[in-house]
Amino acid sequence: MMMCRQATRLMSLRQDRKLSLGEALSLRMHLAMCGACRQCDRQFTLLHEAGRRRADSLFASRSDRE
């Protein structure tokens, strides 16, 4: 059975590419059983979104703010 450490690899991977069916299934099974990993998965998703927003806040056209 997949352990948390390997599960985090798939959680990270799915921020970058589509998981294979096998990968997606084993990740889903692990997440169903593991609360800590569900939190980690949310955190990776949040980091992904945070990166996008950080770039936006640096470079959105806000000449009125300057």
Binding site: R5, Q6, A36, Q39, C40
Partner: peptide, 14 residues
Amino acid sequence: HNGRWQEEARPSSW
């Protein structure tokens, strides 16, 4: 070593 989270490193809710 067995691949589970360390107790003090377990992710919590943000």
